Amino acid sequence: MQHPAVPELAHTTTRPIHWLATATAVSAVVAVSSFLQPGAATAAQPGPRSADTRTTAAAPDPAAVHFPLQCGPAKVLVVKKATGDLDGDGSPETVAVVRCDAGSGTPPSGVYVLTRSHEAHAGPRIVATLVDPKNRLTADDVAVRDGAVTATLLGYSSPAVPSCCPDTTDKAKWQWKGAAFVRSTPAEARSI
């Protein structure tokens, strides 16, 4: 019995031109797919942005501000800074604790609130003085939490107390109310 002859099919025999055509087609598909990317997924994203997810600008840099301290030959020193949104506008403010870089004693602190200027090329500016250095207080533990500034203020019970050794302690809290920062005593300082 003779088997029927199977004709040779052209597409079953590979030649180099077939491999070249296949490689070119695959390369074209890969190249086109790299340009056609899917859009951002939106199914899991919430609707309108909340205040927590807004894009905010960088907090003002205290190094770019001229503080109103009279330090004589000593330099002005930023000893602490804290940042946060104090007025609820979505942009952070900076609270800077500043003093003269004195060699001895406990120089008084100034506590200032800085904001970014609305002008394109202007630097940050001071919008509030929370503690004036003329009051002879030293600000410690300064922080921004929940839209408020808190601090421990070290002072003197009389002018006879040496400047090295503050002998009074006061807790303070400032919060933006309408058009100004209002000082109060933090709740944890009142509870004993």
Rank of each mutant, 00 (worst) to 15 (best):
Q37S: 10
L153D: 09
D61K: 05
V97Y: 03
S157M: 09
P159F: 00
T94N: 06
L20A: 15
T42N: 09
Q175K: 13
A63R: 10
R99G: 01
A40M: 06
W174I: 05
A43S: 10
L69N: 03
A64W: 04
V95P: 09
Q37A: 11
V144D: 11
T169N: 07
T12D: 14
G39W: 02
V6A: 15
H66G: 04
R15D: 11
V26Y: 01
L86T: 12
V78S: 03
V32L: 14
P4K: 09
H3D: 14
G88E: 08
G105T: 13
T169L: 09
V98E: 04
R49C: 03
V30W: 04
P166L: 02
H118E: 15
R116D: 14
A122L: 06
A63H: 05
P124V: 02
A139F: 02
Q37H: 04
A5M: 10
H3P: 10
P166S: 05
T138P: 00
A148D: 01
T106K: 04
A122S: 12
L36D: 11
E188A: 07
A58M: 09
G72Q: 10
I126A: 02
H18W: 11
T185H: 03
P92K: 13
A59I: 01
C164T: 12
F67R: 02
T150Y: 00
D52M: 06
R183W: 03
F35L: 15
A122E: 12
E8A: 11
A151C: 08
V149N: 06
P68R: 01
S91D: 15
T168Q: 14
P4Y: 02
T12I: 04
D89P: 10
T152Q: 13
L77G: 03
A82H: 03
V29Q: 06
V29C: 13
T168P: 05
G178C: 08
A82C: 07
T55K: 10
Q175G: 06
S109H: 06
A31F: 12
V161N: 05
P162S: 12
S157V: 05
P159C: 01
T115F: 00
L137W: 01
P166I: 03
Y156K: 10
H11Q: 09
R116T: 14
S158I: 04
G39K: 12
S163P: 02
T12L: 13
D132N: 15
A120V: 12
V113P: 08
T150L: 06
V142F: 01
A40W: 02
R125Y: 00
P60S: 04
P107Y: 00
D87K: 08
L154R: 13
V149Q: 03
A43E: 11
T150Q: 05
A160C: 01
G90V: 08
Q175T: 15
T53A: 12
A180K: 14
T115M: 05
A31Y: 08
L36F: 08
V6C: 11
T138D: 03
H18Y: 07
R190V: 09
V79S: 15
T115L: 00
A148W: 00
S163N: 12
G88L: 03
T83P: 03
P4Q: 12
E93A: 06
P124K: 02
L130I: 12
D101Q: 12
A96Y: 01
Q2M: 05
S91K: 13
P48N: 06
D141N: 14
L9V: 11
P68L: 04
P62E: 03
A43N: 03
K80L: 13
R54E: 11
